[in-house]
Nucleic acid binder design. Structure first.
Lengths: 193, 193
DNA sequence: GTCTATATCTAGATAGAC
DNA sequence: GTCTATCTAGATATAGAC
């Protein structure tokens, strides 16, 4: 064979990884198959040896992105890593806002997630339920757990939608303060270890 | 003249109003000039008698949408209308989530707002500052005011991104409860009238 | 001011050579 | 598996008739 059997899966992996960044940066509609392929040094026509359609790639990308976002929110295995409060602080950082291509898929795609087919919405839903469980474990309150996720995602979206750095920082700082308060209110009396 | 002088502005008005709904429903990129024009019963070519480009229409639409969202958040002139808490409850409703075309522009466009030109981001920013002032007036806390806006927008986006009605309702209900708590915490000791 | 026709460009997807 | 060439469809925008 002209290509080693590992070649296809390597190319596929590179394509997915590159697509994850590009799609988060520019959105689902605005990123064409040609752009995705040339980002891994291939021509547009070769795409269809790897996926039957652009939609199929989008599904895979969203699946991996959601899985990744959940794993980033998850507490580190034994002990010792950053706390949920600390991970949230990093989420609500200028660094995250300025680099959607490396960040969470939820604020990067935003409203586009409301327009994807139901099968893909199921993936989002499962991921959000996992995130909710992680937050619930911390704050022991169903509502507060959903609100924590909502305001994290919302703050990053809003911070990206304003022009000035000053307002961007205000939004992030304000939300960080509120999140600290939310965590503290729901964990007082519950020793953390 | 073949058309009365009020005709152009009437057509323009109808076009903008119709565009506001369509763009919020389908997104900025996915809605073409032809679709916008045929929604008011005209052909695509006639568009350019009203706007020099699609981008110019988008700016006008976003400007009016932001202005409208601010006016919806604003307390009714003298007294007697719904409270901020009540208006927030309506914002976090299934009705709002299921009808993006009639709802707030921020969750309807979401991440797309992060990719518009700086001039338009200024419009968003000014509107967000007005919304922040309205919230600050209620809760007297800069951070809580930003967090209130962020979690409202975020919750609507997330509610639209999940498949099941049950989870949709959970997200909205949880966020509503948290918003009530936020308002109550920051207003105790401050009589409301 | 609006129409039809068109120019130009880009999109997703397919066909056949290598 | 990847390439080039191409099909079809859709986009933004323009030109000229009415």
């Amino acid at each position: 064979m002209r290509y080693p059997k590992t070649h296809k899966e390597e190319t596929r992996r590179k394509l997915i990884d590159s697509s994850r960044a590009l799609l988060k940066q520019n959105g689902l509609d605005a990123t064409g198959v040609d752009a995705l392929m040339s980002s891994v040094g291939l021509s547009g026509g070769a795409f269809y040896s790897h996926f039957p359609s652009k939609q199929a790639l989008l599904e895979e990308v969203i699946r991996e992105e959601i899985q990744h976002s959940v794993s980033m929110l998850k507490p580190p295995s034994p002990e010792g890593g950053p706390t949920l409060a600390q991970r949230t602080k990093a989420y609500l950082s200028v660094q995250h806002v300025e680099h959607p291509e490396m960040g969470c898929v939820l604020p990067a795609l935003g409203a586009e997630l409301g327009r994807i087919p139901p099968e893909v919405k199921s993936i989002i839903e499962d991921g959000l339920k996992e995130m909710h469980a992680i937050w619930y474990d911390e704050v022991k309150d169903e509502g507060a757990a959903w609100a924590a996720i909502a305001q994290s995602v919302g703050a990053v979206i809003l911070a990206r939608a304003v022009k000035s750095d000053a307002t961007r920082r205000e939004i992030l700082k304000g939300t960080r303060l509120n999140m600290e308060r939310l965590i503290q209110q729901h964990t007082t009396g519950t020793p953390s270890s």
